[in-house]
Amino acid sequence: MEILMSFLIGILFMTATYLMLSKSLLRIIIGTGLLSHGAHLLILTMGGLKRGAAPLLGEHAKSYVDPLPQALILTAIVISFGVTSFFLVLAYRAYQELGTDNMDRLRGKEGHE
């Protein structure tokens, strides 16, 4: 399963990178969304999959899955939500002000470093 997951994570990262390198703002944002999904799965896979019960002591199991990656991912999910929405609004406002979402036209002007 871990091998399969590794390849899935690879695919997610690849598509995310490709989208982020494109010219349209919306695609870039979707790319960041995919990137965070990939990263979450990566953290989960690194901790090992399915070795025990869910991390609830109420389960009274002999072994539990690693709770630490889960805590990290929970934080990451919420943060990535915040960042994605920020990014989305940024894109929307930039389009509204500047009239384009083409990254090639959204470059800094000379002398405005």
Partner: peptide, 8 residues
């Protein structure tokens, strides 16, 4: 604190 759930 005991089951799935919490502030988030």
């Amino acid at each position: 604190h005991y089951h799935p759930g919490g502030g988030f």
